[in-house]
Amino acid sequence: MKLRDYIIRRLVLLIPILIGVTLLTFTISHVIPADVARHFAGGAKANPETIARIREEMHLDEPLYKQYGYYLNDLFHGDLGECYTERRPVTEAIKQYLPATAELTIIAMILAIFIGIITGVVSAVKRNSWIDHVTRLIAITGVSMPIFWLALMLQLAFAYKYPILPLDSRLGIGVVAPNHITGLYVFDSLVTGNFTALKSSIYHLILPSITLSFASLAIILRITRSSMLEIVRSDYIRTARAKGLRERTVIYKHALRNALIPTITVAGINFAYLLGGAVLTETIFNWPGMGRFAVAAVNNLDFPSVMGFTLLAAIVMVTANLIVDLLYSVLDPRVRLGD
Protein backbone atom coordinates (compact mmCIF):
# COMPACT_ATOMS: atom_id res chain seq x y z
CA MET A 1 0.00 0.00 0.00
CA LYS A 2 1.28 3.43 -0.85
CA LEU A 3 2.12 5.77 1.96
CA ARG A 4 -0.43 8.33 0.87
CA ASP A 5 -3.22 5.80 0.68
CA TYR A 6 -2.28 4.48 4.07
CA ILE A 7 -2.34 7.90 5.66
CA ILE A 8 -5.70 8.63 4.11
CA ARG A 9 -7.06 5.35 5.36
CA ARG A 10 -5.78 6.00 8.83
CA LEU A 11 -7.28 9.47 8.82
CA VAL A 12 -10.61 8.03 7.81
CA LEU A 13 -10.36 5.51 10.64
CA LEU A 14 -9.71 8.40 12.98
CA ILE A 15 -13.13 9.87 12.32
CA PRO A 16 -15.07 7.50 14.58
CA ILE A 17 -12.49 7.93 17.31
CA LEU A 18 -12.68 11.68 17.11
CA ILE A 19 -16.47 11.53 17.12
CA GLY A 20 -16.17 9.38 20.22
CA VAL A 21 -13.89 11.96 21.76
CA THR A 22 -16.42 14.72 21.07
CA LEU A 23 -19.10 12.56 22.66
CA LEU A 24 -16.90 12.27 25.70
CA THR A 25 -16.15 15.99 25.88
CA PHE A 26 -19.81 16.71 25.28
CA THR A 27 -20.72 14.49 28.19
CA ILE A 28 -18.17 16.19 30.38
CA SER A 29 -19.31 19.65 29.44
CA HIS A 30 -23.07 19.27 28.92
CA VAL A 31 -24.21 16.29 30.93
CA ILE A 32 -22.10 16.06 34.07
CA PRO A 33 -22.18 19.61 35.46
CA ALA A 34 -25.15 20.25 37.73
CA ASP A 35 -25.78 23.65 36.20
CA VAL A 36 -24.28 23.77 32.72
CA ALA A 37 -25.15 27.39 32.02
CA ARG A 38 -23.56 28.60 35.20
CA HIS A 39 -20.49 26.50 34.50
CA PHE A 40 -20.06 28.04 31.11
CA ALA A 41 -20.75 31.51 32.43
CA GLY A 42 -17.87 31.32 34.84
CA GLY A 43 -19.24 29.62 37.95
CA ALA A 44 -20.61 31.04 41.15
CA LYS A 45 -19.76 34.65 40.45
CA ALA A 46 -21.48 34.74 37.07
CA ASN A 47 -24.34 37.21 36.80
CA PRO A 48 -27.86 36.08 35.92
CA GLU A 49 -27.91 37.85 32.54
CA THR A 50 -24.84 36.01 31.34
CA ILE A 51 -26.30 32.73 32.53
CA ALA A 52 -29.53 33.41 30.69
CA ARG A 53 -27.64 34.39 27.55
CA ILE A 54 -25.52 31.24 27.71
CA ARG A 55 -28.59 29.10 28.23
CA GLU A 56 -29.98 30.62 25.08
CA GLU A 57 -26.78 30.39 23.04
CA MET A 58 -26.06 26.81 23.98
CA HIS A 59 -29.67 25.73 23.46
CA LEU A 60 -29.66 24.23 26.91
CA ASP A 61 -33.43 23.93 27.00
CA GLU A 62 -33.49 21.58 24.05
CA PRO A 63 -33.01 17.80 24.28
CA LEU A 64 -29.48 16.49 24.65
CA TYR A 65 -29.16 14.96 21.20
CA LYS A 66 -30.00 18.32 19.66
CA GLN A 67 -27.52 20.02 21.91
CA TYR A 68 -24.90 17.56 20.73
CA GLY A 69 -25.79 18.45 17.16
CA TYR A 70 -25.20 22.12 17.84
CA TYR A 71 -22.00 21.28 19.67
CA LEU A 72 -20.64 19.26 16.75
CA ASN A 73 -21.69 21.92 14.32
CA ASP A 74 -19.78 24.55 16.28
CA LEU A 75 -16.71 22.36 16.50
CA PHE A 76 -16.90 21.73 12.79
CA HIS A 77 -16.78 25.44 12.19
CA GLY A 78 -13.77 25.77 14.49
CA ASP A 79 -15.79 27.37 17.22
CA LEU A 80 -14.65 26.21 20.63
CA GLY A 81 -16.64 28.84 22.47
CA GLU A 82 -15.70 31.93 24.33
CA CYS A 83 -12.85 32.12 26.80
CA TYR A 84 -14.20 34.03 29.78
CA THR A 85 -10.96 34.92 31.47
CA GLU A 86 -9.54 36.52 28.37
CA ARG A 87 -12.78 37.58 26.69
CA ARG A 88 -11.94 36.19 23.29
CA PRO A 89 -12.59 32.97 21.35
CA VAL A 90 -10.84 29.92 22.76
CA THR A 91 -9.32 29.22 19.34
CA GLU A 92 -7.50 32.53 19.43
CA ALA A 93 -6.09 31.82 22.85
CA ILE A 94 -4.94 28.41 21.63
CA LYS A 95 -3.25 29.96 18.62
CA GLN A 96 -1.32 32.25 20.90
CA TYR A 97 -0.29 29.69 23.49
CA LEU A 98 0.33 26.61 21.39
CA PRO A 99 3.83 27.48 20.07
CA ALA A 100 5.30 27.86 23.55
CA THR A 101 4.00 24.43 24.51
CA ALA A 102 5.15 22.93 21.22
CA GLU A 103 8.66 24.26 21.73
CA LEU A 104 8.86 22.96 25.28
CA THR A 105 7.47 19.49 24.54
CA ILE A 106 9.53 18.99 21.41
CA ILE A 107 12.78 19.88 23.17
CA ALA A 108 11.81 17.70 26.12
CA MET A 109 11.04 14.79 23.79
CA ILE A 110 14.35 15.13 21.98
CA LEU A 111 16.20 15.14 25.29
CA ALA A 112 14.26 12.14 26.53
CA ILE A 113 14.87 10.12 23.37
CA PHE A 114 18.57 10.83 23.06
CA ILE A 115 19.55 10.49 26.66
CA GLY A 116 17.09 7.67 27.26
CA ILE A 117 18.37 5.54 24.41
CA ILE A 118 22.04 6.08 25.15
CA THR A 119 21.73 5.33 28.85
CA GLY A 120 19.43 2.41 28.11
CA VAL A 121 21.97 0.80 25.81
CA VAL A 122 24.86 1.38 28.19
CA SER A 123 22.82 0.01 31.05
CA ALA A 124 21.99 -3.13 29.08
CA VAL A 125 25.52 -3.70 27.82
CA LYS A 126 26.96 -3.22 31.29
CA ARG A 127 24.24 -5.25 32.88
CA ASN A 128 24.53 -5.59 36.66
CA SER A 129 27.49 -3.23 36.85
CA TRP A 130 27.29 -0.18 39.11
CA ILE A 131 26.47 1.96 36.05
CA ASP A 132 23.48 -0.26 35.43
CA HIS A 133 22.31 -0.05 39.03
CA VAL A 134 22.66 3.71 39.19
CA THR A 135 20.88 4.20 35.87
CA ARG A 136 18.04 1.94 36.87
CA LEU A 137 17.65 3.69 40.18
CA ILE A 138 17.54 7.05 38.46
CA ALA A 139 15.07 5.68 35.96
CA ILE A 140 12.73 4.34 38.56
CA THR A 141 12.97 7.46 40.67
CA GLY A 142 12.24 9.44 37.52
CA VAL A 143 8.83 7.86 37.16
CA SER A 144 8.17 8.12 40.88
CA MET A 145 8.70 11.85 41.20
CA PRO A 146 5.92 14.39 41.05
CA ILE A 147 6.98 16.54 38.14
CA PHE A 148 5.92 19.76 39.86
CA TRP A 149 8.04 18.92 42.85
CA LEU A 150 11.05 18.19 40.67
CA ALA A 151 10.49 21.55 38.99
CA LEU A 152 10.42 23.37 42.31
CA MET A 153 13.52 21.60 43.52
CA LEU A 154 15.39 22.47 40.33
CA GLN A 155 14.34 26.09 40.72
CA LEU A 156 15.48 26.06 44.29
CA ALA A 157 18.85 24.62 43.34
CA PHE A 158 19.72 26.29 40.06
CA ALA A 159 17.83 29.55 40.12
CA TYR A 160 18.01 30.44 43.80
CA LYS A 161 20.80 28.70 45.66
CA TYR A 162 23.22 28.63 42.73
CA PRO A 163 21.59 31.12 40.40
CA ILE A 164 23.08 29.96 37.14
CA LEU A 165 19.80 29.59 35.28
CA PRO A 166 16.73 31.78 34.96
CA LEU A 167 13.84 31.11 37.28
CA ASP A 168 10.99 31.14 34.80
CA SER A 169 9.36 32.48 31.60
CA ARG A 170 10.60 32.13 28.04
CA LEU A 171 12.94 35.10 27.63
CA GLY A 172 15.00 37.36 29.87
CA ILE A 173 13.69 40.74 30.87
CA GLY A 174 14.23 43.24 28.09
CA VAL A 175 14.91 40.60 25.46
CA VAL A 176 12.58 41.15 22.53
CA ALA A 177 10.93 38.06 21.12
CA PRO A 178 12.18 37.10 17.65
CA ASN A 179 10.00 37.90 14.67
CA HIS A 180 7.09 35.52 14.60
CA ILE A 181 7.50 32.74 12.08
CA THR A 182 6.54 29.57 13.91
CA GLY A 183 6.33 30.94 17.42
CA LEU A 184 9.07 28.53 18.51
CA TYR A 185 11.59 31.04 19.80
CA VAL A 186 14.66 28.88 19.28
CA PHE A 187 13.73 28.21 15.69
CA ASP A 188 12.59 31.74 14.90
CA SER A 189 15.61 33.42 16.40
CA LEU A 190 17.89 31.02 14.58
CA VAL A 191 16.24 31.74 11.25
CA THR A 192 16.22 35.50 11.75
CA GLY A 193 19.75 35.49 13.12
CA ASN A 194 18.64 37.06 16.37
CA PHE A 195 21.32 35.65 18.63
CA THR A 196 20.35 37.58 21.74
CA ALA A 197 16.95 35.98 21.67
CA LEU A 198 18.42 32.60 20.74
CA LYS A 199 20.72 32.57 23.72
CA SER A 200 18.06 33.79 26.09
CA SER A 201 15.45 31.33 24.89
CA ILE A 202 17.79 28.34 25.11
CA TYR A 203 18.79 29.47 28.56
CA HIS A 204 15.20 29.65 29.64
CA LEU A 205 14.39 26.28 28.15
CA ILE A 206 16.92 24.30 30.14
CA LEU A 207 15.14 23.79 33.45
CA PRO A 208 11.61 23.34 32.10
CA SER A 209 12.66 20.89 29.42
CA ILE A 210 14.75 18.84 31.82
CA THR A 211 11.82 18.73 34.21
CA LEU A 212 9.36 17.74 31.56
CA SER A 213 11.61 15.16 29.94
CA PHE A 214 12.57 13.33 33.10
CA ALA A 215 9.71 10.85 33.34
CA SER A 216 9.72 10.10 29.61
CA LEU A 217 13.46 9.70 29.69
CA ALA A 218 13.07 7.14 32.43
CA ILE A 219 10.46 5.22 30.47
CA ILE A 220 12.48 5.26 27.25
CA LEU A 221 15.57 4.17 29.13
CA ARG A 222 13.72 1.21 30.58
CA ILE A 223 12.24 -0.03 27.37
CA THR A 224 15.54 0.40 25.54
CA ARG A 225 17.35 -1.50 28.24
CA SER A 226 14.92 -4.38 28.35
CA SER A 227 14.65 -4.76 24.60
CA MET A 228 18.43 -4.57 24.26
CA LEU A 229 18.79 -7.30 26.87
CA GLU A 230 16.42 -9.50 24.95
CA ILE A 231 17.96 -8.74 21.58
CA VAL A 232 21.59 -9.31 22.53
CA ARG A 233 20.63 -12.90 23.27
CA SER A 234 18.98 -13.43 19.91
CA ASP A 235 20.22 -15.64 17.12
CA TYR A 236 20.96 -12.84 14.70
CA ILE A 237 23.24 -11.15 17.19
CA ARG A 238 25.10 -14.43 17.48
CA THR A 239 25.35 -14.43 13.68
CA ALA A 240 26.68 -10.88 13.72
CA ARG A 241 29.35 -11.89 16.18
CA ALA A 242 30.14 -15.02 14.20
CA LYS A 243 30.84 -12.81 11.21
CA GLY A 244 33.68 -11.24 13.15
CA LEU A 245 32.08 -7.85 13.71
CA ARG A 246 33.46 -5.82 16.56
CA GLU A 247 31.25 -5.65 19.63
CA ARG A 248 30.55 -1.96 19.05
CA THR A 249 29.12 -2.66 15.63
CA VAL A 250 27.15 -5.60 16.95
CA ILE A 251 25.56 -3.45 19.65
CA TYR A 252 25.11 -0.11 17.96
CA LYS A 253 24.24 -1.36 14.52
CA HIS A 254 22.67 -4.78 14.74
CA ALA A 255 21.10 -4.70 18.18
CA LEU A 256 20.17 -1.06 18.58
CA ARG A 257 18.51 -0.88 15.19
CA ASN A 258 16.11 -3.57 16.38
CA ALA A 259 15.71 -2.15 19.86
CA LEU A 260 14.63 1.16 18.37
CA ILE A 261 11.38 -0.38 17.19
CA PRO A 262 9.74 -0.74 20.61
CA THR A 263 11.54 2.36 21.87
CA ILE A 264 10.07 4.62 19.24
CA THR A 265 6.60 3.27 19.90
CA VAL A 266 6.91 4.06 23.57
CA ALA A 267 8.40 7.46 22.84
CA GLY A 268 5.46 8.31 20.62
CA ILE A 269 2.90 7.37 23.20
CA ASN A 270 4.86 9.42 25.67
CA PHE A 271 4.74 12.51 23.54
CA ALA A 272 1.07 12.78 24.30
CA TYR A 273 1.69 12.30 27.99
CA LEU A 274 4.17 15.13 27.87
CA LEU A 275 1.17 17.36 27.30
CA GLY A 276 -0.17 16.32 30.69
CA GLY A 277 3.23 17.01 32.20
CA ALA A 278 3.33 20.36 30.45
CA VAL A 279 0.28 21.44 32.41
CA LEU A 280 2.27 21.20 35.61
CA THR A 281 5.66 22.27 34.26
CA GLU A 282 4.31 25.40 32.63
CA THR A 283 2.50 26.40 35.77
CA ILE A 284 5.70 26.37 37.75
CA PHE A 285 8.00 27.91 35.19
CA ASN A 286 5.44 30.51 34.30
CA TRP A 287 5.70 29.29 30.74
CA PRO A 288 3.14 31.08 28.60
CA GLY A 289 1.77 27.96 26.97
CA MET A 290 -1.36 25.86 26.71
CA GLY A 291 -0.79 24.09 30.01
CA ARG A 292 -0.61 27.24 32.07
CA PHE A 293 -3.62 28.55 30.17
CA ALA A 294 -5.54 25.39 31.01
CA VAL A 295 -4.70 25.59 34.70
CA ALA A 296 -5.74 29.22 34.83
CA ALA A 297 -8.94 28.21 33.06
CA VAL A 298 -9.64 25.44 35.56
CA ASN A 299 -9.09 27.80 38.46
CA ASN A 300 -11.31 30.48 36.97
CA LEU A 301 -13.97 27.92 36.09
CA ASP A 302 -13.43 28.90 32.50
CA PHE A 303 -15.08 25.80 31.14
CA PRO A 304 -14.94 26.40 27.36
CA SER A 305 -11.18 26.81 27.58
CA VAL A 306 -10.78 23.60 29.57
CA MET A 307 -12.81 21.70 27.00
CA GLY A 308 -10.92 23.31 24.13
CA PHE A 309 -7.66 22.21 25.66
CA THR A 310 -8.96 18.68 26.19
CA LEU A 311 -9.98 18.35 22.57
CA LEU A 312 -6.66 19.70 21.41
CA ALA A 313 -4.84 17.18 23.59
CA ALA A 314 -6.85 14.40 21.99
CA ILE A 315 -5.98 15.61 18.51
CA VAL A 316 -2.28 15.79 19.37
CA MET A 317 -2.44 12.32 20.84
CA VAL A 318 -4.05 10.63 17.85
CA THR A 319 -1.68 12.45 15.52
CA ALA A 320 1.27 11.26 17.58
CA ASN A 321 -0.05 7.71 17.32
CA LEU A 322 -0.36 7.99 13.57
CA ILE A 323 3.21 9.25 13.29
CA VAL A 324 4.43 6.41 15.48
CA ASP A 325 2.75 3.87 13.24
CA LEU A 326 4.36 5.40 10.19
CA LEU A 327 7.78 5.43 11.83
CA TYR A 328 7.22 1.88 12.93
CA SER A 329 6.74 0.75 9.37
CA VAL A 330 9.91 2.56 8.36
CA LEU A 331 11.95 0.99 11.14
CA ASP A 332 10.59 -2.51 10.88
CA PRO A 333 10.54 -3.96 7.37
CA ARG A 334 8.36 -6.81 8.59
CA VAL A 335 5.51 -4.39 9.18
CA ARG A 336 3.62 -3.66 6.04
CA LEU A 337 1.45 -0.60 5.97
CA GLY A 338 -2.16 -1.48 6.21
CA ASP A 339 -1.81 -4.91 7.77
Binding site: G20, V21, P33, H39
Partner: peptide, 24 residues
Protein backbone atom coordinates in the same frame (compact mmCIF):
# COMPACT_ATOMS: atom_id res chain seq x y z
CA UNK B 1 -12.77 -1.76 22.72
CA UNK B 2 -13.84 1.31 20.77
CA UNK B 3 -14.81 3.00 24.02
CA UNK B 4 -11.40 2.27 25.49
CA UNK B 5 -9.84 3.65 22.30
CA UNK B 6 -11.62 6.91 22.95
CA UNK B 7 -10.42 7.10 26.52
CA UNK B 8 -6.90 6.32 25.41
CA UNK B 9 -7.01 9.21 22.96
CA UNK B 10 -6.86 11.79 25.72
CA UNK B 11 -3.88 12.04 28.06
CA UNK B 12 -4.94 10.78 31.49
CA UNK B 13 -4.09 13.81 33.56
CA UNK B 14 -5.90 16.12 31.18
CA UNK B 15 -9.00 13.97 31.00
CA UNK B 16 -9.08 13.69 34.78
CA UNK B 17 -8.67 17.43 34.97
CA UNK B 18 -11.64 18.02 32.68
CA UNK B 19 -13.79 15.57 34.63
CA UNK B 20 -12.94 17.12 37.96
CA UNK B 21 -13.60 20.56 36.58
CA UNK B 22 -17.06 19.41 35.49
CA UNK B 23 -17.84 17.66 38.75
CA UNK B 24 -16.61 20.50 40.91
Amino acid sequence: MRVTDIFFSIPGLILAMAFTAALG
